[in-house]
């Protein structure tokens, strides 16, 4: 394509936006609002994603051994479990080691006082098994249950439930986000339709004198893409400012706390900019395509 032609396409796209300035403004506003909501979801999704990864890594199960299992047998069982498919790690925790671990994790003085090593230790011997990921944990549990000397398998249900709800939430966000994007695309499509109607005479003349179909279409693509682009810039700016403030507030200056580990500002800036800008331009062009296909009879 010649430079003159490219310049002309941009000029025509600009003319279309200015001519329907109120409708373009409304479309930009609609895209901005849509992408703002979408961006909030992206922030949630990215942060939930990082939590999911963390939780997913920590889904382990406690394999309780029968009382009659000796230490040698327990060691042999541990090695056997380690060799099972989809098992990342298996570690034997004896009754006494169990006492130390419970005391380390729990600060409840009354409870820890009754825990004693030796003869009166009521904790079982167990093997802590870490599957490769949460999706294979059920299979690992079944495989371990089939082995000899196993009393029961206690799964970390809280982690699994949290994980399930996070995944569900992520899917809801995805569906909602796609719905919003489609809505914005229709708004842009409507704006482009107005431009096409306003220019139907020009298009008719262009066809008659032999303009190529792409020559006629390009300004509308650019117009849609530009509306999508402008509609993306505002939400990106606002969301990044808010996120930066939020990260600072939560972490009190540092980005890590023990309670909540948020995705860093730089990473989030990249996720937000790429996803919102990409989706903004995509729905802009997609909106144009919808109108071009329906109303531009060339």
């Amino acid at each position: 394509m010649k430079i003159d032609t490219i310049r002309r396409h941009f000029r025509e796209a600009y003319r279309g936006i200015v001519k329907n300035s109120w409708m373009s403004f409304a479309a930009v506003g609609a895209v901005a609002v849509t992408l703002m909501i979408f961006g909030v979801f992206v922030i949630f999704a990215v942060n939930l994603g990082s939590i999911t990864d963390e939780v997913g890594d920590n889904v382990s199960m406690n394999v309780v051994l029968k009382d009659e299992v000796t230490k040698e047998q327990a060691t042999a069982l541990t090695t056997k479990i380690k060799g099972l498919p989809n098992v990342n790690d298996a570690r034997f925790i004896s009754k006494d080691e169990g006492v130390d671990e419970v005391k380390k994790n729990l600060k409840d003085a009354d409870f820890t006082r009754v825990l004693q090593k030796g003869e009166n230790n009521f904790l079982p011997n167990l093997i802590k098994v870490t599957p490769k990921n949460v999706s294979v944990s059920k299979g690992v549990e079944q495989a371990v249950k089939g082995l000899e000397g196993i009393e029961s398998v206690k799964n970390s249900n809280t982690a699994k439930e949290l994980l399930d709800s996070v995944l569900l939430f992520k899917n809801i966000i995805l569906v909602f986000g796609v719905g919003l994007a489609v809505l914005a695309a229709f708004l842009i499509s409507n704006t482009i339709k107005l431009t096409i109607i306003a220019r139907r005479r020009e298009i008719e003349v262009q066809r008659l004198v032999g303009a190529s179909n792409w020559f006629i279409r390009w300004p509308f693509f650019i117009e849609g893409g530009f509306i999508g682009f402008v509609g993306s810039v505002l939400p990106i700016g606002v969301l990044l400012l808010v996120y930066q403030g939020f990260v600072k507030m939560i972490s009190g200056g540092s980005q890590n706390t023990n309670l909540l580990q948020m995705v860093g500002f730089a990473d989030m800036a990249m996720y937000l900019t790429v996803s919102i800008l990409g989706i903004g331009i995509f729905i802009g062009v997609f909106g144009s395509v919808l109108s071009i296909r329906r109303f531009l009879k060339i």
Binding site: T5, R201, E202, E204, V205, L208
Partner: peptide, 29 residues
Amino acid sequence: VVFQDYKLLPHMSAYDNVAFALEAVEVPT
């Protein structure tokens, strides 16, 4: 092609209406 209703673009001058046909087929400026 020439029509009964001329099919000129009302916001363009006579010159621009004719130039429009050349621009549409990407004639060098």
